[in-house]
């Protein structure tokens, strides 16, 4: 029925049986078909329960931080997971030789909440076909535009497949250029409207750290956001501004645009609009065509003698 899934189970099963990995990270059955959960198979039996379908939403790369400590781990990687792994490797937090990457060609993950809202009932299956998504419900199949069904992070995705893999589950899809339409729209507002926008969203922040803990770039052993010298534990709007300013700046030039922070946020803060602002400016000011893909030289880790003065020139939009 699902050939990709069967193939993945068999690849993961062999990797585990041959002892090439001690653990395989993918998705497994969750509370309902539309919510598969991160799954950690330790043997062929558990690999036999791996799930691979358009509902596989959560980002997996960050789990490699914990799970490569005991030996090599396998992982099923979409483009976002692949870039997350590149980030961890570039930051020397995970050894590339400690990870066996099974690359896939991802066509976007269906947001379980959007799907249920659209269908008005529980959704059992989904199929992404170009610009439409077919949802299977007890009442039959319903078709919706892709842009209404997918996770936000998938709608902006330019990386359906990882850039490298140790084996491919299927023919990888080529990457594309990232666009920053959301950032551009916000830039067109005046300062007061922009401030009102961010104050409204950040006011909801719970400081649960779900964004930070979802992020493959937020991989520091000790985080300044846990240090009261840098950020007190008070929870006023000013503190939230400090939290999100610092978080976004610390991943500037390092964010891989997986969008997992925004997916993880329980109160719907459009965190990618913060990360993407840095990406867009890095692209425009420092001529980095794909700022979300880990670079030879980190955009903020080096300089060029003829860098522009970004506060003076070229920023007509603001």
């Amino acid at each position: 029925m699902n050939e990709r899934q069967a193939k993945l189970r068999s690849i993961a099963g062999s990797l585990l049986a041959e002892g090439r990995v001690s653990l395989f990270i993918g998705f497994g059955p969750g509370l309902e078909p539309s919510r598969p959960v991160p799954w950690f198979a330790k043997n062929a039996d558990e690999a036999g329960k791996l799930v691979l379908d358009p509902f596989c939403g959560p980002g997996l790369a960050r789990y490699l931080l914990d799970e490569t400590a005991a030996g090599p781990a396998g992982i099923v990687a979409r483009g976002c997971d692949g870039l997350g792994l590149e980030r961890l490797v570039a930051d020397k937090r995970v050894g590339r030789d400690q990870v066996y990457v099974v690359g896939v060609a991802c066509r976007g993950a269906v947001d379980p909440d959007k799907a249920r809202r659209l269908a008005g009932r529980p959704v059992f299956g989904a199929e992404v076909n170009g610009e439409t998504v077919a949802l299977t419900t007890a009442g039959g199949r319903l078709s919706f535009p892709r842009s209404d069904c997918l996770l936000d992070r998938c709608l902006a995705c330019a990386d359906p497949s990882p850039r490298t893999a140790d084996t491919w589950l299927e023919e990888p899809l080529p990457g594309a250029q990232r666009e920053f339409e959301g950032v551009e729209a916000l830039e067109k507002l005046g300062p007061d409207d922009r401030y009102a926008f961010w104050a409204r969203h950040l006011e909801r922040c719970l400081r649960c750290h779900a964004c930070r803990n979802a992020c493959p770039a937020c991989n520091c052993v000790a985080c300044s956001l846990d240090n009261p010298e840098w950020l007190e534990r008070t929870t006023g709007l000013a503190d939230h501004f400090m939290f999100h300013f610092t978080r976004a700046y610390h991943v500037a030039g390092r964010c891989v645009a997986c969008g997992e922070c925004q997916r993880a946020c329980p109160v719907g803060i459009p965190l990618m609009l913060l990360n993407e602002k840095f990406m867009k400016d890095i692209r425009d000011l420092f001529a980095v065509p794909d700022p979300h893909r880990p670079q030879e030289a980190e955009p903020l880790g080096h300089f060029s003698p003829d860098d522009p003065e970004g506060w003076r020139e070229g920023d007509e939009t603001l």
Binding site: V183, L186, E187, P191, D192, D193, R194, Y195, A196, F197, W198, A199, F241, F245, A248, Y249, A252, K277, F278, D281, I282, L285, F286, P299, L300, F303, P305, D307, P308, E309, G310, W311, D315, L318
Partner: peptide, 25 residues
């Protein structure tokens, strides 16, 4: 030698980011 060249890069971004959050230029 190069401290201010890092500053230039960094604040090229931060200046724009502060304005993006709503601060007047």
């Amino acid at each position: 030698t190069s401290g201010n060249l890092f500053t230039r890069r960094r604040y090229s971004l931060v200046k724009r980011f502060l304005e993006y959050l709503g601060m007047e230029p």
